[in-house]
Computed example of a mutant assay.
Amino acid sequence: MHKLIRTLGFAMLALSLASCRLIYTPDVQQGNLLDKKNVDQLQPGMTKRQVLVLMGSPSVNSPFNQNQWDYVSTQQHRGGPIKIRTLTLTFNNDVLVRSEGDFFAEDAKKLVDDSKKYHANYPVDETQGDKNTSGTPEKKDGGSGDEGH
């Protein structure tokens, strides 16, 4: 009976810890990671080969529609809601005719602010770190072997 109560107690403790999000949940990024400067270089009239060299392989390439490439990325921050970003490139006769999507729809300032809130900013006072204030290096005992001669 005592073992049953102890086991139920541990199970309830584990369940309460899991529900309080004390267990670490990592960020998950999947799909294509595109660089905005590469996406900005896309121009109508580029060939599929030029786009492939610039952007890399699309994450979705349908065998039924050879004229559409989809670049998809999903991001989930610590178990939160999943953000899906897409970029669709449309070709006609192997030439880029249109690009559309919301891959870089977020405001750049918002992204910078989000990245700063997860990094601690510790003030550094360089004068406090040095214990030697005389300006000359200190000798360590037993290192020279000249003592007592």
Score class of each variant (00 low, 15 high):
Tyr24Ala: 06
Thr25Ile: 14
Thr25Cys: 09
Thr25Leu: 12
Pro26Arg: 15
Pro26Val: 12
Pro26Ser: 13
Pro26Ile: 09
Pro26Ala: 11
Asp27Glu: 08
Val28Phe: 14
Val28Tyr: 14
Gln29Val: 14
Gln30Ser: 15
Gln30Leu: 15
Gln30Pro: 03
Gln30Trp: 14
Gly31Tyr: 02
Gly31Val: 06
Asn32Gln: 07
Asn32Trp: 00
Asn32Met: 06
Leu33Asn: 13
Leu33Cys: 07
Leu33His: 10
Leu33Gln: 14
Leu33Gly: 09
Leu34Met: 04
Leu34Pro: 01
Leu34Ile: 02
Asp35His: 09
Asp35Gly: 08
Lys36Tyr: 06
Lys36Cys: 02
Lys36Glu: 07
Lys36Asp: 02
Asn38Ala: 04
Asn38Met: 04
Val39Asn: 03
Val39Tyr: 01
Val39Lys: 09
Asp40Val: 02
Asp40Met: 06
Asp40Trp: 04
Asp40Ser: 05
Asp40Lys: 10
Gln41Thr: 06
Gln41Arg: 15
Gln41Asp: 05
Gln41Ile: 04
Leu42Val: 00
Leu42Asn: 00
Leu42Cys: 00
Gln43Ile: 07
Pro44Phe: 03
Pro44Leu: 00
Pro44Gly: 02
Gly45Arg: 00
Gly45Val: 05
Met46Ala: 02
Met46Val: 00
Thr47Met: 13
Thr47Ile: 08
Lys48Tyr: 13
Lys48His: 13
Lys48Gln: 15
Lys48Leu: 14
Arg49Phe: 08
Arg49Val: 04
Gln50Met: 11
Gln50Lys: 15
Gln50Asn: 08
Val51Arg: 11
Val51Leu: 12
Val51Cys: 14
Val51His: 07
Leu52Gly: 01
Leu52Val: 02
Val53Ala: 10
Val53Cys: 03
Leu54Trp: 04
Met55Gln: 02
Met55Asp: 07
Met55Gly: 01
Met55Arg: 00
Met55Val: 02
Ser57Tyr: 01
Ser57Glu: 14
Pro58Arg: 05
Pro58Glu: 11
Pro58Val: 15
Pro58Lys: 07
Ser59Phe: 01
Ser59Gly: 15
Val60Ile: 14
Val60Cys: 03
Val60Ala: 05
Val60Glu: 05
Val60Asn: 06
Asn61Lys: 15
Asn61Tyr: 03
Asn61Glu: 04
Asn61Gly: 06
Ser62Val: 09
Ser62Leu: 12
Ser62Ala: 13
Ser62Thr: 14
Pro63Trp: 05
Pro63Phe: 05
Phe64Lys: 11
Phe64Val: 13
Asn65Ser: 13
Asn65Ala: 13
Asn65Leu: 08
Asn65Glu: 09
Gln66Phe: 06
Gln66Glu: 08
Gln66Pro: 10
Gln66Cys: 03
Asn67Tyr: 04
Gln68Ile: 11
Gln68Ser: 12
Gln68His: 06
Trp69Cys: 01
Asp70Glu: 11
Asp70Phe: 07
Tyr71Lys: 12
Tyr71Val: 09
Tyr71Thr: 10
Val72Tyr: 01
Val72His: 03
Ser73Ala: 12
Ser73Ile: 04
Ser73Phe: 07
Thr74Ser: 00
Thr74His: 00
Thr74Glu: 01
